[in-house]
Design a binder for these strands. Structure first.
Length: 464
RNA sequence: UCCCCGAUAGCUCAGCUGGUAGAGCAAGCGGCUGUUAACCGCUGGGUCGUAGGUUCGAGUCCUACUCGGGGAGCCA
């Protein structure tokens, strides 16, 4: 009896001699001079296709096989043989080719040759059938698996923090409001909309971060991490921003800022090394067709220690760089993209961890340093992508935290449960947020974050 | 949201200082003793993003809008 196997399996030399059933989508058909056809078949199990030899003697050769075009789906039964041709170890000599569905060439938008990513975005339901999006999907899966394995091995618990939150000022920008009210007929009170009639008895939003909730579990169970979707309603139109993206947020009790940096560095290196090891075919493709430096860059990162410099030191490096920046370099203002790029792409040429930022440009929850001017913030910057991780040691002193809240016009009473963590058995702790899509950008060399997530959500775009 | 650039065949693009559209790939047909981004020949295929305007005449110049890209801001 023939065995149903994946194309990944059938491509291995060990499969030679097996009678198999393969099912997948035709990438291309080449008709040979000898009166038979080659079908390139892909089923997503690996980057490469398998070559199927369909002889003219097959009963449906003229009626169906010669009409197969890119996108058609088939079931092939046959024997795996060593391939005499170049470019593959094995091929399948078909005993039968059954067609599940043709793809009309007059209307099927995908062709054998290259398409622009802009065009593919308009057919996001079909782009998984391309080399690039198949590779992205497999690498994305590898990265997510790697993240979970890393944290499990490091003793972190996977925590599900809420998607819907009532904290409307977590300090991370505009939020999507969630309501069950009829927007056509909003109940009005004396002070505008009467949210007591809304589902949760108050205004609620999609989360911009699980950090505050993760802190509550870290301050009781030690090491936690969240991994879920995150929402930002900013009108951001860049190749690095999404309105819906996936973020990993570890939070660990008794971690100071340097433990936090160590964790971040270990995590990134683990992800990079797993991808190189587990997705070699996909990475070769990215290295050849997308960015010829990605593999060398990943190896370089694995072999070097992340440079750690304070914000103040970074400002000195920038001032002495001799570069003419569009934006002035001045202590107290945030680093511009061009500054980050200079540091990570020109000066250090590797990932850089910047820390101890001015208190005025960072949120209330970051721990105040003894100099009273800086806070224990840390950002990991990588070449091309920029900020990939943002984190900090959290302020664990109740009085200082309340003071910082008032400084930023926040009401401590709105955060009563967050402050309780400091009121009862407070503990030093730290954490960070890692943007999964940004990691994937730097791993794959892909230029636009909209091509790294299956269904991008950006301003004016939610078709699929 | 701001600045810059773009939109021409199914796809990727060319089309000069205005004179009524072209290539490659894809598709169809023919050829070629295993091809692998196959190759060679022929054929079909376009209200030049939308709406106005200037002009004898607009793919080409002007205005607005729509969509896309790059940069900036917000950040992951």
């Amino acid at each position: 009896m023939p065995e149903k196997i994946s194309i990944a399996e059938a491509r291995k030399a060990e499969s030679v001699g097996k009678n198999v059933i393969l099912q997948g989508w035709v990438r291309t058909r080449r008709d040979s001079k000898g009166g038979f056809s080659f079908l390139e078949l892909n089923d997503g199990s690996c980057f490469g296709n398998i070559q199927v030899i369909a002889e003219a003697a097959l009963p449906n050769y003229e009626s169906e096989i010669k009409k197969l075009t890119a996108g058609s789906s088939v079931r092939v039964e046959g024997e795996v043989k060593a391939s005499p041709g170049k470019g593959q170890a094995t091929e399948v000599q078909a005993k039968s080719v059954a067609v599940y569905g043709f793809a009309d060439v007059e209307t099927y938008p995908l062709q054998k040759k290259g398409h622009s990513f802009e065009f593919l975005r308009t057919i996001a339901h079909l782009r998984p059938r391309t080399n690039t999006f198949g590779a992205v999907a497999r690498v994305r899966n590898c990265v997510c698996n790697s993240i979970h394995q890393f944290f499990q091995e490091e003793g972190f618990l996977y925590l599900h923090t809420p998607i819907i939150t009532a904290s409307d000022c977590e300090g991370a920008g505009a939020m999507f409001q969630v309501t069950a009210l009829n927007l056509e007929k909003l109940p009005r009170g004396e002070n505008g909309v009467d949210y007591h009639l809304d589902f949760f008895d108050r205004p609620t939003y999609l989360t911009v971060s699980g950090q505050l909730e993760a802190e509550t579990y870290a301050c009781g169970l030690g090491r936690m991490y969240t991994f879920g979707p995150t929402f930002r309603a900013e009108n951001s139109n860049t190749p690095r921003h999404l309105a819906e993206f996936w973020m990993v947020e570890p939070e660990a009790a008794f971690f100071d800022i340097f433990d936090d940096m160590d964790l971040a560095e270990r995590l990134l290196k683990r992800i990079f090394s797993d991808v190189l090891q587990q997705c070699p075919e996909d990475m070769d493709f990215f290295n050849q067709r997308i960015d010829k430096t990605v593999i060398a860059t990943l190896r370089h990162v694995l072999d070097s220690e992340f440079r750690r410099v304070t914000y103040t030191e970074a400002m000195e490096i920038l001032q002495q760089s001799g570069e003419s920046f569009e934006f002035p370099v001045a202590w107290g203002s945030d680093l511009q993209s061009e500054h980050e790029r200079y540091l990570t792409e020109k000066h250090f040429r590797q990932p850089v961890i910047l820390y101890d930022y001015p208190r005025t440009i960072k949120p209330f929850y970051m721990r105040l340093n003894d100099d009273q001017k800086t806070v224990r913030a840390m950002d990991v910057l990588v070449p091309k992508v920029g900020e990939i991780i943002g984190g900090s040691q959290r302020e664990e002193r109740l009085d200082v935290l309340e003071m910082r809240m008032r400084e930023q016009d926040l009401k401590p009473e709105d955060y009563w449960w967050y402050l309780d963590l400091r009121r009862y058995g407070t503990a030093p702790h730290s954490g960070f947020g890692l943007g999964v899509e940004r990691v994937l950008l730097s791993i794959t060399g892909m230029a636009n974050i909209r091509d790294i997530i299956p269904f991008p959500r950006t301003p004016g775009n939610a078709e699929f």
